[in-house]
């Protein structure tokens, strides 16, 4: 696989349209055009049912676009691309494997030698504070710990593209804050290209270098904002004026879209 030129976007979406249920069916995505460059952290922000998850699933090769073009490294996405890391809202851990085996799943399913990847798996677990839980079954972990394991799993093979579909959506506020901080630290460290679906304005602004707002039914790109915020962030950033300015802006946009009423 030839690495794309740095100036070349890693993801190109041109007029991507996705309809479910034939011609008269539901249009989930309507002519989405979006470029993502290597190393960006793009939040896909929008209300439930705006198609942002569908867009992510198209990128993951789990759905085929109805019309338009979707390229990864300059090539159309036909199935799940190589070099993909993925995390869902439900952690999708396998209950019958221990934590370490779960983290190693991408190596096992990718047909690689699992043993070679064990040091890396243990390093990832250490990074999220789960080094002592390597041989524990997921059922013994809290929701936040499980989602950490899922993130380690998504990072095992050093993905070029990390897709996260509301990974913290089911967590309580405090755990969510912690995982936001953890994820930012990991991303700031290795700068893997990340697309992160969320409906939380705070989460989107805190984590990303760029926020793409989707409008609901059919999903369209309503706004595309590159954030001018420091590269290294702590949770305290969320009280800074520039952070609040962005958050207020997105909230105002949601209000004009009729999604929230103040």
């Amino acid at each position: 696989m030839g690495r794309a030129d740095a100036s070349q976007p890693i993801i190109v979406s041109r007029d991507l349209t996705k309809r479910f249920g034939g011609r008269a069916g539901l249009t989930a995505l309507d002519r989405i055009s979006l470029d993502v460059r290597e190393g960006e952290f793009v939040a896909l922000l929008g209300p439930s049912g705006c198609g942002k998850s569908t867009f992510l699933r198209c990128l993951a090769g789990l759905e085929q676009p109805t019309e338009g073009e979707l390229l990864f490294d300059g090539r159309p996405i036909q199935g799940p691309p190589q070099g993909l890391g993925i995390a869902f809202q439900r952690d999708a851990l396998l209950d019958w494997f221990d934590v370490l085996q779960n983290v190693l799943l991408p190596a096992e399913f990718g047909g690689l030698r699992v043993r070679d990847h064990e040091p890396r798996a243990r390093e990832l677990l250490r990074m999220v504070g789960l080094q002592d839980f390597a041989h524990v079954y997921p059922s013994a972990l809290s929701g936040g710990m499980r989602q950490r394991v899922a993130i380690c799993r998504s990072l095992l093979l050093e993905p070029r593209l990390l897709l996260m579909d509301e990974p913290f959506g089911a967590l309580d506020a405090m755990t969510r804050d912690q995982l936001n901080a953890d994820l930012h630290r990991i991303w700031a460290d290795r700068r893997m290209t990340t697309l992160f679906v969320t409906h939380s304005i705070t989460e989107a602004v805190f984590l990303s270098t760029r926020v793409v707002v989707f409008s609901p039914r059919p999903g369209r790109v309503a706004e595309n904002v590159v954030l001018d915020l420091p590269a290294h962030r702590t949770l305290a950033l969320r009280e800074e004026p520039e952070f609040l300015r962005y958050a207020r802006g997105f909230r105002a946009l949601f209000e004009t879209m009729g999604l929230i009423h103040g």
Partner: peptide
């Protein structure tokens, strides 16, 4: 989503059967 994950990780049909 477990099956989606398996697909995204390029799990072979046999592995999906015996591992999941």
């Amino acid at each position: 989503d477990t099956l989606d994950l398996a697909r995204a990780l390029h799990g072979s049909r046999f592995k999906v059967l015996v591992r999941i």
